[in-house]
Structure formats: structure tokens, C-alpha cells
Amino acid sequence: MSDTKLRLSNVTKTFPVAGGSFTALDGVSLEVQSGEVVAILGPSGAGKTTLLTIAGALRRPTSGVVEVAGEEIQGLSQVELARVRREKVGFIFQSFNLFQALTALENVQYVLELHGLRGRHARARAQQVLTMLGMEKRLHQRPKDLSGGEQQRIAVARAFASGGELILADEPTANLDRERSIGLMELLRALSRDLGPPILMVTHDNRVQHLVDRSFWLEGGHLKGVEPGQRQDY
């Protein structure tokens, strides 16, 4: 099996706007390998979320090739895109997006059941992952009873529990203070290293640059690499 879990080749995404079109991504190419953590930085409106949604099989590119865990997605139907997301991608959202009616355990169990794991097996696996993230005492709490950091851990557990081949994170540190941000990044690195799936994150937070393996700068739809040790400020 290839080590490349995400491949974007000359990807362009345009949106129709009044009187013409807007190019959010313009010839973007990127590869993400197993076990690495990659950050896409850039100002608001740079196209970071567009890139993430295309990488996550939520949108198709206007042109170019997108390969998620070995499967090209640009020609897939909505039903097939949903299958790719379900089977191959784990998401960590900025605002956690946990199901409020479900407990921490059930939130993780939900994606496992989407993967076909049933009943007590799904429950046991969810418990195992949450315990690994230090949430063993909060298994039966609902999101409203948990802190932001704890909710983020459940979101991380949900993303990794399903055994997807690629983890996509949208501004994962946006709602966390500095200390918790560093803690989360260390956790993500450790999970990626131990469990295998690479992490592609988009973020405003340039503090994460030195905590990832590679970082890229996206602006005006163009992506360029940031050299190690070179801090990109904006």
C-alpha cells in the first residue's frame, strides 16, 4: 500500500460569483505521507477551508486530480464521496461539532458504527480510544458538561477511532489557549506516529509551525512551502 495518503495535482477550484467567477485554489499540488503532520497556513479567505473540503471529499475540484488514500475523487458521485469520507477520512472541526445528545463514548461509538462495527465491539473500541486520550473518567458525560479541551479530545478520538487513512483538522487550536494548543499538537503528532494516518490541518495559528513536520502557506489560491525554521507571519 502506498505511503501517500493524500495527493493533490494541479487542483483548481472556482466558484461562480455575480458577473464572473472566483478562483479559490489555483493549480495547487500537495502530497501528504503516512505518519506526518502537515499544516496549511494563510490569512482568512485564502482558500484553506476550500482546500480542506476538497481533500476531505466534501467537494470536487473544478480541475486537477485529487487522490484520497489511493482513490481519485474528482469523478465520484455524492454517494461515493460520502463512502470515501466514511471509510478513509477522519475530521477534527474547529467548533468540535459533537452530537450534543450523545455522551463522549457515544460520540466516538457513532463513527465506529458507521464503519460497520456493532454494539459492544464499537463501545469497547470507543472506550479504548477515549482512555488512550485520558478521557476514561468522562466517558458518560455529554459535551455541554465538558470543557473545550475535553470536547476537543473527544473530537480527536472520533477522528482517529474510525481507523481512517487521513485526518483533516480545521483550525484545531482556534478555541484553545496556548498551553492546551501545544498539548493538542503533541497529542496529534503522537497519534499520527503511533496509529499511522497523517494529519493535514489548516490554521491561522502560526504558533503551530514548529510543532508540525511540514507547513505550507496558502494565499490567493496559491500554495507554497515554508522552509523548516522559517517562520511565516501574517
Partner: peptide, 9 residues
Amino acid sequence: VMKALGTPR
């Protein structure tokens, strides 16, 4: 969120 996670229709 369910859709994003790939929940079938």
C-alpha cells in the same frame, strides 16, 4: 456533521 462524517443518506 453526519453528512460530513459520511453517514449514508
